[in-house]
């Protein structure tokens, strides 16, 4: 339903890689510094890439009118939203996780903390897609929707970012990162329960 042709995924992955590559060029190539900031850089880049594709989530359907059909569909709108979010994550979140080993090498990460990074991305990027779906539904029909979207959902992304980065940092320091991972898992479950409801409510008021 929501799978688009592959260009969107490519654009997002390219954007993600370019943002990460800019950091060694901007900060300087010392391996120690890169290792220290690696988790933060990869997470911020993942967050921005998720943002980049977010406003497309419902926009095409809104423009061609199929969103109204989806809202009128007998299937609960919450499930349709969940399916859309899953599709969004598969086309933009998963590719980021697949290319991240390459970036971890660029940023001089060691293997054990890299594994933690992968786990945090697996738990965190679907959460970002879920939270972002609320924003994507709210901005339908607004002026300057792209900039608006980042203003309203980046604050809501902050908790995911904090725990994602601190889990990896804990493993770099050699401490257990289990608490942060548990919180990330909790955030994921909580948002998968609540975000579809909020997004569906926003979609209903958008087409009224």
């Amino acid at each position: 339903m929501a799978f688009r042709n592959g260009t969107d995924s490519w654009v997002v992955v390219m954007f993600f890689m370019i943002v990460v590559i800019l950091f060694p060029l901007g900060v300087g190539p010392e391996p120690d510094i890169l290792n220290k900031i690696s988790s933060g850089v990869i997470w911020v880049a993942a967050l921005l890439s998720a943002m980049l594709s977010m406003d497309r989530l419902f926009h095409v359907d809104y423009d061609d009118g199929s969103l109204e059909l989806l809202v009128l569909h007998p299937q609960p709108l919450e499930f349709i939203v969940l399916a859309k979010v899953l599709a969004h994550w598969l086309t933009t979140g998963l590719p980021l996780i697949i290319v991240s080993p390459l970036l971890a090498i660029f940023l001089n990460m060691d293997i054990s903390s890299y594994f933690v990074l992968i786990i945090t991305l697996f738990l965190g990027t679907p959460t970002l897609s879920l939270i972002g779906s609320i924003g994507a539904a709210l901005i339908l029909g607004a002026r300057r929707s792209g900039a608006l979207l980042s203003l309203i959902i980046l604050p809501l992304f902050i908790p995911v970012l904090i725990f994602g980065v601190s889990a990896v940092e804990a493993s770099i320091l050699g401490v257990s990162s289990k608490p942060q991972l548990l919180i990330l898992g909790g955030l994921f479950l909580l948002s998968s329960a609540l975000c579809p409801i909020a997004s569906a409510a926003s979609l209903r008021q958008a087409i009224e």
């Binding site: 609320i134 029909g141 607004a142 002026r143 608006l148 309203i152 926003s202 008021q205 958008a206 009224e208």
Partner: peptide
């Protein structure tokens, strides 16, 4: 506040901002 004022239709802005 930004979301409230982002729509041409005032009541849509009000409802979108309310959900946020």
């Amino acid at each position: 506040m930004v979301l409230y004022n982002a729509f041409d239709d005032r009541s849509r802005g009000a409802r979108a901002a309310a959900i946020l």
